[in-house]
């Protein structure tokens, strides 16, 4: 297919070729529509402004650092690791990260297996643990390609997988959300749990990156 129209006009990434839009201007019909819906729903008492604000604040408070704490705990505490692999929701809740409405399943990278997560049907993502997904996770290109050519996609993220490591792509098609537990980097025996958590990146928990030996 020679039609690259998608990529030139993939607004999913926002307007990354232009400077960021100032927040005080309204640029599109749907932006007006969003304001109109909010005002109508508040006028009718369906939602309150405080509730909307609450959900924005809640969303802002969830970052990949939450997932990193779960991963670091699993590295240092084998009983926690077992619980995490058996029941992701319960294990995350132990660390104060409640996940409601979806089932969290942790999948562990090993010497032999590398896991990577996608949603080919929409943009399912463990939002309650990692926050909002990055723009590329929601893009057509990532969603379409990673199930078909995961090694090429990983290479675009700078991750070269040895041929003898099996790639396992998880397509989140239903009520399950996946957290990749990356391999603990070599040479980190002396780090405490907080220092380990600081090594864990968002991309490693999606599975497009590995944590390299001696990184940081």
């Amino acid at each position: 297919m020679s039609d690259h129209h998608h990529h030139d006009h993939d607004h999913d990434h926002g307007h990354h070729h232009a400077p960021p839009q100032p927040d005080d201007k309204v640029h599109s019909y749907h932006q007006i529509l969003s304001i109109a819906l909010k005002e109508l729903l508040i006028e009718k008492g369906v939602v309150t402004a405080a509730e909307v604000r609450h959900f924005i604040e809640k969303r802002d408070s969830i970052t990949p650092a939450n997932g990193a704490k779960v991963v670091a705990r699993a590295w240092v505490d084998s009983a926690f690791r077992e619980r995490l692999l058996a029941d992701g929701n319960a294990a995350a809740a132990e660390l104060g990260f409640p996940i409601t409405g979806t089932k969290l399943v942790a999948v562990e990278n090993t010497q032999d297996t590398h896991n990577v997560v996608v949603c080919t049907l929409c943009s399912c993502y463990p939002r309650d643990l990692l926050g909002l997904p990055p723009a590329w996770y929601k893009s057509r290109a990532y969603r379409a390609r990673v199930v078909r050519e995961p090694r090429a996609v990983l290479r675009e993220f700078g991750t070269e997988l040895p041929g003898d490591v099996a790639v396992r792509v998880h397509d989140s098609t239903a009520d399950i959300r996946f957290l990749v537990v990356p391999q603990r980097p070599q040479g980190t025996q002396n780090l405490d749990e907080d220092a380990l958590a600081a090594l864990v990146t968002r991309d490693s928990m999606i599975g497009v990156a590995r944590l390299e030996e001696g990184a940081h």
Binding site: V147, R148, A166, R168
Partner: peptide, 28 residues
């Protein structure tokens, strides 16, 4: 709901990668 594992080589006839590579999806 089940997690079902597919061999990537069974999904894509021209698959470039290891024969051990898999794709998993949650199916009803």
């Amino acid at each position: 709901l089940y997690k079902v594992r597919f061999r990537a080589a069974d999904l894509w006839p021209d698959y470039q990668g290891s024969p051990k590579d898999t794709v998993e999806a949650d199916l009803y």
